[in-house]
Measured scan of single mutants.
Amino acid sequence: TEDARKEAKKIIDNGGSPDEAAKFIKKYGLSEDQARELVKRAL
């Protein structure tokens, strides 16, 4: 979702790792793979 993508970008912009961002956005109901893909797109 757009919200999850924004959250991921915010985490990374604040110095978080892509892994942290992926873990965080899994709470939106995404699978591990979906979360990682979304983080990649957010970069």
Rank of each mutant, 00 (worst) to 15 (best):
A21Q: 04
A35S: 03
R36T: 09
Q34Y: 06
K23N: 14
K27I: 08
L43R: 03
P18Q: 07
R41M: 15
K9N: 05
A4W: 12
G29T: 01
K26N: 06
L43S: 05
A8G: 04
R41F: 12
I25N: 01
L38A: 07
Q34P: 00
Q34I: 07
A22V: 15
A35W: 14
Y28K: 01
R36L: 10
N14K: 10
E7D: 14
G29C: 13
Q34D: 09
L43Q: 08
E7S: 07
E20M: 08
L30Y: 10
E32A: 07
G29M: 01
V39L: 09
I12L: 15
D19M: 10
L38T: 06
A4D: 01
A8F: 08
G16Q: 05
R36N: 10
R41A: 15
F24I: 13
P18Y: 10
G16R: 05
K23Y: 11
K27F: 03
Q34F: 06
D3E: 14
I12Y: 05
A42P: 04
T1V: 14
D19T: 09
R5K: 13
E20K: 02
I25P: 00
G29S: 00
E37F: 00
I25V: 08
E20Y: 11
A4M: 13
E32I: 10
S31D: 09
D3M: 15
K23F: 10
K27W: 03
K6Y: 08
D13P: 04
G15W: 05
R41N: 13
K6P: 02
E2L: 10
T1R: 11
Y28F: 13
D13M: 13
Y28A: 02
Q34G: 02
L43I: 11
F24Q: 12
A42H: 07
N14L: 10
S31N: 10
N14V: 05
K40G: 07
I12K: 04
D19H: 09
P18H: 07
A21T: 05
T1S: 11
L43F: 08
K23W: 11
V39Y: 03
R5N: 06
E37R: 05
I11E: 03
A21Y: 12
L30R: 00
R36V: 10
G16N: 03
D3T: 12
A21M: 13
E7M: 13
D13Y: 06
I25H: 01
N14R: 13
G29K: 02
R36S: 07
A21P: 01
S31E: 04
K40D: 13
A8E: 03
D3W: 14
R36D: 07
A21R: 04
L38P: 00
K26Q: 15
K9W: 13
A35Y: 08
I11P: 02
K40W: 14
A8K: 00
E7R: 04
A8T: 03
I11W: 08
K27Y: 06
D33K: 09
K23L: 12
A8V: 14
I12Q: 04
P18C: 02
S17N: 06
R41C: 15
D19I: 09
F24R: 10
S17V: 06
R5I: 15
A42L: 15
I12A: 02
D33N: 07
A35H: 01
G15C: 15
Y28V: 00
K23I: 12
G16T: 03
S31V: 00
R5M: 15
D3V: 13
K10D: 07
K10F: 12
Y28P: 02
K23R: 12
Q34T: 06
A8N: 02
E32N: 02
S31L: 01
P18L: 14
Q34S: 04
K40H: 12
L43C: 13
I11C: 10
E37N: 05
D33Y: 09
T1M: 15
G15P: 02
K26L: 15
K23Q: 14
D19V: 09
P18T: 08
I11L: 07
A22G: 03
R41K: 13
K40A: 13
E20D: 13
K9M: 14
D33E: 14
A42I: 15
A21K: 00
I25W: 04
I12R: 01
A21G: 01
G15I: 02
A22E: 08
S31M: 04
D19C: 12
K10A: 11
R36Q: 11
D3L: 14
A4E: 03
N14A: 14
K6A: 12
E20I: 05
L38W: 02
L30T: 00
E20N: 04
A4H: 04
E37C: 12
Q34E: 14
E20Q: 09
R36I: 12
E37W: 03
